[in-house]
Nucleic acid binder design. Structure first.
Lengths: 137, 137
DNA sequence: TCTAATCTATAGCATTTGGCTATAGTATAA
DNA sequence: TTATACTATAGCCAAATGCTATAGATTAGA
């Protein structure tokens, strides 16, 4: 019942980009140093985030990555949804055949509701909110 | 980001026991047949549930297992907490050294809040509620 | 035009975790 | 005393995770 490092590292990267928003493109190597995450791993996380239109990239020398929209318009929930494999606590929703007759549906609803509660919370937090709420910066 | 089968199977077993509450001890073999879960796997799940005082067992022939308290006093959240390994989306709470300086604490709070939101929901659902809410029974 | 600095894509692998099975018991009602 | 239950621990296979490596494509600037 852990979030994958994809989500957690990806969120940290997005937060790093948010902190350097308006400073032009940020090189992935710099994010790597600051966040202590391998360049190659970050590169993998960038791909889906670009496809989801959260990051835009500029190629060539002096290129780099930056948020595709302002930090107040990106929520943690969106980032997690993009990076995490599935978004449900159980997969009996997509695959009803894993249920047996006796307690079918009895447990399903709870897992759905709990998943929703979690994402509702994550959706309520934007990158700018995270930065502003930080008391140590 | 899936719940383990321990939690899901364990919840189904508890639900099964709840449905046969007041019928005397339930043999693990019967739960196994009804829920289509291996006896040996169920036996493993019973141990922690007994330690947490959610199940009591009677040995010998005609023995079996039963809920240690009424279904309305047991919540899904309690069951999941007992059966799931960790209860947090991230383990940077217990192990602060996995955090790096730059974004320390910035992300931690979100994971904590989302975890709490999920458990708040699970804690609000009792076994009896699940049975009564079922429209197909 | 060339090239260094960057981003892109895919494959692969080592470790961990999850999910389950097997073995060897212990306890007890009939 | 024995069949029917429950208890405890070890081990194994498969899948997922977390990361690394290799090869290549793009492009601003000299």
């Amino acid at each position: 019942m852990k979030l994958s490092t994809r989500s957690r590292y990806g969120t940290r990267m997005m937060l790093d980009l948010a902190q350097h928003y308006d400073e032009g493109p940020v090189q992935i190597g710099n994010v790597s140093k600051r966040e202590n995450i391998s360049v190659k791993y970050l590169e993998q996380l960038i791909i889906p985030l670009k496809k989801a239109n959260f990051i835009k990239s500029i190629r060539g020398p002096k290129g780099g990555h930056m948020l595709a929209k302002p930090p107040e318009e990106i929520t943690v929930g969106e980032i997690v949804r993009v990076l995490e494999g599935g978004i449900n606590l159980s997969n009996c929703i997509e695959n009803p055949e894993v249920c047996n007759r006796t307690t079918r549906c009895l447990t399903r609803g709870v897992w759905e509701e709990a998943t929703k509660a979690m994402y509702d919370k994550l959706n309520s937090v934007t990158l700018s909110k995270m930065i502003n709420d930080d008391s140590s910066s």
